[in-house]
């Protein structure tokens, strides 16, 4: 949904792309629109073998590579703006949605860090990433990747649920780890505040669209266990010391030797600084900040 939070699929997983096809339907019947779009796609020889009817969208399967979910939609005149209605095949009715509004809302949440920075009138810490706007997007990617590693089945919490929870809890932290801790703590708080009911997650730009309606008692329990465990892991990760220990934790949390790769990149950057004489020392340790004492050249020796 153009949120720039796509997570690179892990082995044997596919990219998942969403497309909203907004039209002016001739019929008031949602199923007529759905079938019209389906038939139009099926007319095309290249697509007919790849089509699959889903609950609301039509899936185009490029097996082993990606799938494209095409969501037929019509303008929601009663709500106006970017609000739309989409056919639901099971309920046989129009359901409210607002993907474009959602995207704008998400972008707005992403710029929180930028706005806060301007309000504070002071420079961000030097370790802040170049694109502060990407902090929330990075945090959402981490949450989705942790989900992909934790759930092998279809019981996994939906991306839109995790994204909405993350974006509404984010409060402009300039670092990804800070954002992640804030978000997870806030979700735990929401779960506890809602108990014994469930947390309700709606499209903030169209409260009639409930993202959480697919939850059952079992899948909601799975979701809460996932969040509780993830929060503890994230706290422990941030507190961890030692590159090997941090790498091990990252490997467990995010899979595919991510920790090893992260440590490699970290050391590469540090070594680049060292090679140009930008790594110095103070009484508290090594640093790449200016004004530190230079370290004379030396050659590690021995076996």
């Amino acid at each position: 949904m153009a949120l720039q939070t796509t997570v690179k699929p892990r082995e044997a997983e596919e990219f998942d792309l969403d497309l909203v096809l907004q039209v002016e339907p001739i019929s008031q019947d949602p199923l007529v629109l759905y079938e019209q779009v389906y038939r139009r796609l099926a007319d095309h020889g290249a697509y007919v073998q790849k089509l699959e009817r889903m609950k609301r969208c039509i899936r185009l399967n490029y097996s082993g590579e990606f799938h494209l979910d095409i969501l037929p939609a019509r303008a929601d005149r009663s709500r106006g703006g970017t609000a739309v209605q989409v056919p639901d095949r099971k309920l046989e009715q129009w359901m409210p949605s607002n993907p474009l509004g959602y995207r704008d809302w998400f972008e707005e949440r992403c710029t929180l860090a930028v706005l806060l920075k301007e309000a504070m009138q002071e420079p961000l810490p030097s370790n802040a990433p170049a694109t502060v706007k990407a902090v929330l997007k990075r945090a959402v990617q981490l949450i989705k990747r942790r989900r992909d590693v934790a759930f092998a089945n279809d019981e996994a919490p939906r991306s839109v649920v995790l994204t909405t929870l993350a974006a509404r809890s984010y409060s402009g932290e300039p670092s990804v780890s800070g954002a992640l801790l804030t978000i997870l703590k806030a979700i735990v708080g929401e779960i506890e505040a809602a108990w014994p009911e469930r947390v309700v997650i709606v499209n903030p730009t169209n409260p009639a669209e409930r993202f959480c309606e697919a939850w059952t008692t079992e899948t909601y329990d799975e979701f809460t266990r996932f969040i509780y465990a993830f929060q503890q892991e994230a706290e422990a990760l941030v507190a961890a010391r030692g590159l090997a220990e941090i790498g091990r934790r990252l490997n467990v949390m995010f899979g595919e030797q991510v920790g090893v790769r992260a440590m490699n990149e970290y050391v590469t950057k540090l070594t680049e600084a060292r090679n140009v004489g930008a790594l110095g020392f103070t009484a508290s340790g090594l640093t790449t900040r200016g004004g530190a004492n230079p370290i004379p050249k030396h050659t590690f020796y021995g076996r």
Binding site: G242, L243, A244, I246, G247, R248, G259, V260, M263, N264, Y266, V267, T268, L270, T271, R274, L279, G280, F281, G285, L286, N293, I295, H298, T299, F300, Y301, G302, R303
Partner: peptide, 26 residues
């Protein structure tokens, strides 16, 4: 400070199996 650098590369070696600090072996 050389020892501090050595410790960083030791930890990185622990994490990745690679010594990234350069140097020479006799």
């Amino acid at each position: 400070p050389w020892l501090l650098e050595w410790l960083v590369y030791y930890e990185a070696w622990q994490a990745t199996g690679e010594w990234r600090g350069g140097g020479e072996h006799p």
